[in-house]
Design a protein around this nucleic acid. Structure first.
Lengths: 95, 95
DNA sequence: GAGAATTGTAACACGTAACGTGTCAGGGTG
DNA sequence: CACCCTGACACGTTACGTGTTACAATTCTC
């Protein structure tokens, strides 16, 4: 069940929301109530989906905020898991 | 299926991990490889579970990192949803 | 009761992240 | 050519996670 290469939510947003509707970044940013740069950063994988942004997306595109944050979670988690072996942690309970 | 009052992961951590094992904050912090303050902030709901912390918890307590981040997600989301009506967002697709 | 351990928390510093505004260069289109 | 869209950058603000240090309050132990 592990996602080895979870896509950045920005890619999904662009391909599943903006492109099908023929929306430009400028238009979408305006509708979402954020700056063009903010949306651009997300679309280009330079920023993550914040909880507030997830709610904005859920309003604009009729999806659930949870689905966006869940994608972001798996993306962030994949990176954190990559550092698992570098963390010095003692086991406190049965693994 | 909505979680109206998702508990802060810190409460869960204290009640389901530290207390059953009789661990002090100092001991647990040392085992996790973080400062006492960092763990204390989480336990007292002043800080969230970061992806790296989730991995640390998964190692120490034999749980999954995803479960911790998922709890944090729902906690953060509940707060963001509270501001849903204050966000000026235009609908771009069918709700 | 006295001393030690535990805990919460405040102050300060640092790195990172989200967000805004402004600007600029390149590409497409009227 | 002029205009719009886009990506990228600089700068500033705000917030958060983390560490260190320090202090006060509580609790445990002798």
């Amino acid at each position: 069940m592990k996602m080895h290469n979870p896509p950045h939510p920005g890619e999904v947003l662009r391909e599943l929301c903006l492109q099908p509707l023929g929306l430009t970044v400028t238009e979408a940013a305006k509708a979402l109530g954020v700056s063009r740069k903010t949306l651009s950063s997300i679309l280009n994988c330079r920023a993550g989906i914040s909880p507030e942004m997830a709610v904005r997306l859920s309003i604009a595109f009729g999806t659930t905020a949870e689905s966006w944050l869940s994608q972001q979670l798996h993306y962030d988690l994949a990176k954190a898991e990559g550092k698992r072996r570098t963390l010095r942690v003692k086991k406190l309970a049965a693994a």
